[in-house]
Amino acid sequence: MSTTTRMTGRRIVAIAAVALFILHQDFWFWESTALVFGFLPIGLAYHALYSILAAGLWAAAVKFAWPDHIERFAEAGEPEGGESSGGSVRS
């Protein structure tokens, strides 16, 4: 994937995340007791659908904005200082 495509993907994912954050505040169904399929209160059905949309958003993030560079960085070197060394700062 080219750098330009990845940057565009990241922007779209970021915009979608903000939109999803706003959509969480569904004041339009706040007082409705209407039922979906005759048993699911619409306020609950909306947020169940929201969970599926959230999964969709993160699937898009994985597809279009996956940080390959982080993996390359991690794989580039062995742990410094051996087993469970935990870096270099000492008391």
């Binding site: 982080i70 960085f73 410094e80 200082g81 870096g87």
Partner: peptide, 12 residues
């Protein structure tokens, strides 16, 4: 993912 990468790289 970022913390994992530092853990992997620096052995945390």
């Amino acid at each position: 993912i970022r913390l994992w990468s530092f853990g992997k790289r620096y052995g945390y």
